[in-house]
């Protein structure tokens, strides 16, 4: 034990540096109005908290939960805008609570409500399970007989990175008037699932065809009138309308309103894309070609 320093140093070293959290206390307080209630009803309840430097609304809600209202319901996981759990509405607009700084609302009230396009469970939690049901109805990725490892070039796939960023916060679903105002849940999949369908349809190795789902199935893409509200709220900046919905609408239009294709469909029935195609190689390049024409 030659190079051991003396015992007081050792004891000191084992002590993690203490953080001076107090330095972050701004000395100010802030009042948040938080919805307390359930599906039957409820009201906004004011809570006053000490304001801490850099605080996000989620921090404030969790502080209230720990100090004032142990049973306040809220969802969160990552605290870093990666998981999409903490979506709720602040002053009527869908927001990730973990990404919304309290100071952004200086001079304004902060009213926190659960997402409104889905049934309210309790406080800030809505029942979003409907979305998972819709997801399960979308034909999954299907590369047919093709076996990974795939040879795909960056330029074949770079368009797919954007829709794949989706963190399933369902804020686009919340804001879309087709769901929020017109309650077309049974017939309309919503922007989140157009985003998913887009990458599936444009994946160079995928063989399934989801256009029928979009048009005649529960996709209901025709209900979308391109208001772009969904794109505006997307926390990971997916250009939902421009890059997902419009290209899909174009494909649907091609498939359904091109007389030659319409006739083929009548004759062939609703056979899938892949089964009518030749070997994998041609198929992949065929899909690639499609991406390019749309890009």
């Amino acid at each position: 034990m030659s190079d051991r320093t003396n015992i007081t140093d050792i004891a000191e070293m084992a002590h993690a540096p203490a953080y001076n959290d107090d330095a972050a206390n701004t000395g100010e307080t802030r009042t948040l109005q938080i919805f307390r209630g359930d599906g039957e009803g409820g009201s906004l309840v004011p809570y006053e908290i000490e304001l801490i430097e850099g605080m996000v609304v989620l921090d404030a809600v969790l502080k209230i939960q720990a100090e004032q209202a142990g049973d306040l319901a809220v969802r969160w996981n990552c605290k870093a805008a990666h998981c999409g759990s903490c979506s709720a509405e602040i002053n009527g607009k869908p927001k990730l609570l973990c990404k919304s700084r309290v100071e952004e609302y200086d001079g304004q009230e902060i009213k926190v409500m659960p997402l409104q396009a889905f049934p309210v469970v309790k406080d800030l939690v809505s029942d979003v399970s409907w979305n998972y049901g819709v997801s399960a109805q979308i034909q999954p990725f299907n590369p047919g007989k093709e076996q990974a490892p795939f040879t795909m070039y960056e330029e074949d796939v770079e368009r797919l990175y954007e829709p794949k960023k989706c963190i399933e916060c369902f804020m686009c679903q919340d804001v879309c008037h087709v769901l929020r105002t017109h309650h077309k849940h049974p017939e309309f999949a919503g922007p989140r699932f157009f985003v998913r369908t887009q990458w599936l349809e444009m994946h160079p190795m995928d063989e399934n065809n989801r256009l029928q789902f979009l048009k005649e199935g529960r996709g209901g893409v025709q209900y979308c009138n391109i208001t772009k509200c969904c794109s505006e709220v997307c926390p990971v900046d997916i250009h939902i309308t421009d890059n997902s919905i419009i290209p899909l609408k174009e494909r649907v239009a091609d498939e359904y309103y091109d007389p030659a294709k319409w006739l083929m469909r009548k004759i062939r029935g609703n056979r899938r894309n892949g089964s009518a195609n030749g070997n994998g190689g041609t198929r992949a390049s065929h899909k690639r070609a499609e991406i390019r024409t749309n890009g």
């Binding site: 999954p140 990725f141 590369p143 076996q147 990974a148 490892p149 795939f150 040879t151 795909m152 070039y153 960056e154 074949d156 796939v157 797919l160 990175y161 794949k164 990458w199 599936l200 994946h203 995928d206």
Partner: peptide
């Protein structure tokens, strides 16, 4: 590779591999 088979997408090398 199984993930890729199921639809996962990784960044590519210039040769078109993961």
């Amino acid at each position: 590779y199984e993930l890729e088979q199921w639809g996962a997408l990784f960044n590519r090398t210039p040769e078109g591999k993961i």
